[in-house]
Amino acid sequence: MSIWEYANPKKFIATTTPLVPWVLGVAIACLVVGLFWGFFLTPDDFRQGSTVKIIYLHVPAALMAINAWFMMLLASLVWLVRRHHVSALAARAAAPVGIVMTLIALITGAIWGQPMWGTWWAWDPRLTSFLILFLFYLGYIALWEAIEDPDTAADLTSVLCIVGSVFAVLSRYAVNFWNQGLHQGTSVPVATGERTISDVFFVPLVICMVGFGLLFLALVMVRTQTEIRVRRMRALEMRMRS
């Protein structure tokens, strides 16, 4: 029994199909509870007023936007090294979800920035890096759409994803160097194990993060299944025509 068994498309579909409703259900439950809690039951921040409630959308979305790219990077590497089709298709399936997460993080950030910093958009390092991440997602998706042959597309997008990751990290440092920002530091520094927000805000935030994560997982599973079926359909049609 090894993990690579799930690289078999049939096995993947058979395993994930019963999982999807559960994961999706728990994700939605987490989101409803977390957002409800955050929206109705948390106090206003003494400086930010009620806008602090936006954090329950902004932080989890930003987290998943980066994690989605990271997952695509891993899937691309697996595809290039072990040539499992499911892996390449999972990377393809994750990209649109990732771009939506990036968009949510950007939009909520802009809406929050308007009353707090007095501007919708500031060329702040974090905001700018997210905009650049958005552009990377756009290019990646466009390359997938542009190439007919699925294996060629998988190869080229994987190479782009790897090179893009290097340049995305580079851009992050370049942008930091370029402009010291307005954005506050991270609220949940994992590395140090401390945190800068109080428990009242923290618990619903964690629930929302779990919800976003599971939602991403469920969506990737559904979309990967769809991609597998599209591949199979195309192969069958080709065979019938010949």
Binding site: I132, G139, L160, G164, F167, S171, A174
Partner: peptide, 27 residues
């Protein structure tokens, strides 16, 4: 090299290359 085989590859290539140019431009 990524877009060499594509028809209408030029526009796509700009979309792929320009984000990669960001760090160089900034510095």
């Amino acid at each position: 090299a990524l877009t060499v085989g594509l028809r209408r590859g030029g526009l796509l290539m700009s979309l792929l290359v320009l984000p990669l140019y960001v760090p160089t431009l900034i510095f």
